[in-house]
Design a protein around this nucleic acid. Sequence first.
DNA 1: AAGTGCGGCAACCGCAAAAGG
DNA 2: ACCTTTTGCGGTTGCCGCACT
Length: 329
Amino acid sequence: MGKSTCFAAASGIKRGPWTPEEDRKLLAFIQLHGHGSWSTLPQKAGLKRCGKSCRLRWRNYLRPDIKRGNFSLHEDQTIIQLHALLGNRWSAIAAHLPKRTDNEIKNYWNTHLKKRLAKIGFDPVTHKPKTAILGSANGDPKRLSNLSHIAQWESARLQAEARLSKESKLHKSSAHQLPQDPTASLTHDHLHHEFAPLVPQCLDILRASAWESLISMSTKSLSSAADAPTNHINGLDHVSFGYHHDVHEHGINIISNFEGPTSDHQFSGMMECDDSRAMSSMTTGSLGLNELIGQHCGNECSELFEALQQYMGFEVEVGDAWTSSEQLL
DNA sequence: AAGTGCGGCAACCGCAAAAGG
DNA sequence: ACCTTTTGCGGTTGCCGCACT
């Protein structure tokens, strides 16, 4: 467009709020003929508006598949999480919130969520705690522990970004080699691409990455505890901790394996999380994960798990030591 | 009751990328 | 390859309604 062909020039072109009559005309025309070329639509539809204005009105207001009204808690969390990952890429964020427009999300962020984050001490741009908080840690173990959680989260976020970028490149290069066989094209990736707005792929990546960091940290804690000569973790001379995660359309399955010197310390866990956020469970062989971590690592790992889960919006039902995480906001 | 300030949101603006000739 | 047109996007503006004085 370069210089605006519609807002700048044009005498006789109406601007400002749309009247119900104009809405009716635009809606009727599009329902009958589709929008076609926006630049010629106003004339055909009998509107004294520019095409750009018509397009905007349709996209942000008249489209039948638009949900209006209050944002749910889950939508709030999704926006915050995606904003941490994507920044002000409103259209990309909107792609993960069915029936919400980028404009609506942008407005909602600027008028509500940004303020809420600021209120609880987070910089809404970086999603990091305000410098005042950082500066005041001063060796306080509790605060330093919180900072460690934050750093861990940031690491997870950066990993997710890198992975997202990598996946995107792979996706582009593989798009050139799509099979010609129409049935063969119905792969998971293809579906992901084809129905992107319905499948919050980057959330999966985000979550997977966070869990990856989480598991990795707990492994380190276990190992460091095991290495410390005066602090054998309840007599464990050897521990190993492995996991496998499987990202799918509805969330992520995590299967973890912890191996101690005896079979008593073996367990496997499975966790499923979906985007309706609530479902989460873990089963173990002989020990609950929370018991295991709590028993051998102290509270620090539990805090890490809890902090991450709060941030990710998961709800946990893993026994007594962990209570259901309240939502961030 | 009138004036003022503020928040929320629809609409505008201008730039960049994509598409078309 | 280049130019023009169209579309998409994100930042910003300005109107409207509500709360407060």
